[in-house]
């Protein structure tokens, strides 16, 4: 488990730009806001709550090919499965890496961004909590979808069509400030679902 985790993290580190890609993307999605809707403080605060979720979903969605596809296509997935036959271990390692590499940077810059959008400190904590618990569930979801679609022709759009309806509950509860317990519950549910479905998908493609 630890070795796998180390390997996945090293892989991300070697292609080090990936850390910056998503956070720059996230920042850019957000700074479009004032250009589109003007600089009215109150309005920006309202929009900010929604747009961070779009930023988060897009950055998780656009990077989902890196969860299993890359390793599957170049053959590394075979080696990993040979050495670590427990698929659950592989999947959990992928959850952690994907979250650390593509979600964690967003949480690091979130304080600065909410400062730019005049979000009050109380609201910031709630937004942060929502986004945190929501991001876990969303990573679980993209993981199992990417395990299921390993053999499909490489279309990010197909994956988006599958993933976005599954994201909807997260987005709905995410924009409400007090609903972090629900997001946590949703995340736990998607964890259980994701473990089963990802293992099933991987098993099919390895055969």
């Amino acid at each position: 488990m630890l070795a796998l985790l180390k390997r996945d993290l090293y892989l991300a580190l070697y292609s080090s730009s990936s850390f910056f890609y998503t956070s720059s993307f996230f920042v850019l999605v957000l700074i479009i806001l004032p250009f589109l809707f003007g600089t009215n403080n109150v309005q920006l605060q309202v929009l900010f709550k929604g747009i961070i979720w779009i930023g988060l979903s897009l950055s998780i969605l656009l990077t989902m090919e890196r969860i299993f596809n890359a390793d599957y296509e170049d053959g590394n997935l075979d080696i990993i499965i040979q050495r670590y036959p427990s698929l659950e271990t592989i999947i959990i390692s992928k959850y952690i890496t994907h979250w650390v590499v593509y979600c964690l940077p967003l949480f690091i810059i979130l304080p600065i961004l909410s400062f730019l959008f005049y979000v009050s400190l109380d609201n910031f904590f709630l937004i942060f909590l929502n986004l945190l618990f929501g991001s876990f569930g969303m990573v679980f979801i993209v993981t199992f979808v990417s395990a299921l679609t390993l053999g499909a022709k490489r279309t990010i759009f197909l994956k988006a069509i599958i993933v976005i309806p599954l994201f909807v509950p997260f987005l709905i509860f995410g924009t409400n400030l007090e609903s972090w317990p629900i997001l946590l519950a949703l995340s736990m549910m998607s964890f259980v679902l994701s473990m089963y479905v990802s293992a099933y998908g991987l098993r099919l493609y390895v055969e």
Partner: peptide
């Protein structure tokens, strides 16, 4: 739509 597309896209 996702169901049908997925079915079609796997050869």
């Amino acid at each position: 739509l996702a169901y049908i597309f997925l079915w079609q896209s796997i050869t």
